[in-house]
């Protein structure tokens, strides 16, 4: 029998506590992204430009670096 996966970050409990934990996790993620080295952020930017260009099919621009 397949074991049920339990998200240990969000156990059963008080709704306010769980929400607080979820939003704190989001904030941690964004702050982690913000603290990446600048060249790494620029590489992510180019990937974003590429993704947008694929979706839009026409237009958009990708840095050629």
């Amino acid at each position: 029998m397949k074991k049920k996966r339990v998200n240990t970050d969000h156990p059963e409990g008080n709704i306010d506590e769980i929400r607080k934990r979820i939003f704190a996790g989001k904030a941690r993620f964004h702050s982690c992204q913000a603290s990446l080295p600048f060249p790494e952020k620029i590489r992510i930017l180019v990937k974003l430009q590429r993704a947008v260009q694929r979706v839009r099919k026409s237009g958009g621009f990708v840095w050629d670096i």
């Binding site: 913000a34 600048f38 952020k41 620029i42 930017l45 974003l48 430009q49 947008v52």
Partner: peptide, 14 residues
Amino acid sequence: GIAAIYYIEPILTY
């Protein structure tokens, strides 16, 4: 936008 990216998470700019 590029200066902003220096301080925050990457955002789309051209």
